[in-house]
């Protein structure tokens, strides 16, 4: 029993890994900071923990898909991230891929459901 739950959790984590970065890119046409994203994504039904999101933002920045700027106005220093031009291009094509892929997977699942 335990084993089944663990297996499933592993599959779900694996499945979410790439999609999380896509969801993050989708939110950053306008500047946004880490914790705001944590809340937004949770509200949007894609919960990501802060300890996953912050390193991810950093990685996307290193890869040149995001750029960042410190904002000091609120008293605490906030790092705002935004998509770069490259980020926007990659995002546009990636979301195409995502839509096509999820459509295909869905139709496979439908088909399996009908033939059951």
């Amino acid at each position: 029993m335990q084993k089944k739950e663990e297996l499933l959790a592993g599959f779900v984590t694996e499945m979410r890994r790439g999609a999380t970065a896509l969801a993050v890119l989708s939110r950053l046409a306008e500047p946004g900071y880490g914790y705001q994203l944590v809340r937004d994504l949770a509200v949007g039904g894609v919960p990501v923990e802060a300890n996953t999101l912050y390193p991810l933002l950093r990685r996307l920045e290193e890869q040149g898909l995001l750029c960042s700027d410190w904002d000091m106005r609120e008293g605490k220093p906030r790092k705002y991230y935004q998509r770069t031009e490259t980020g926007t291009e990659v995002y546009a094509r990636w979301q195409e891929e995502w839509k096509r892929f999820s459509l295909s997977v869905n139709s496979l699942l439908e088909e399996a459901h009908e033939n059951k």
Binding site: Y35, A50, P77
Partner: peptide, 17 residues
């Protein structure tokens, strides 16, 4: 090179939480 930056960001994150 990323040490200080990350520390600052984490400090604000913890304050936010």
């Amino acid at each position: 090179k990323s040490r200080e930056d990350t520390a600052k960001e984490l400090r604000t994150l913890i304050a936010d939480m």
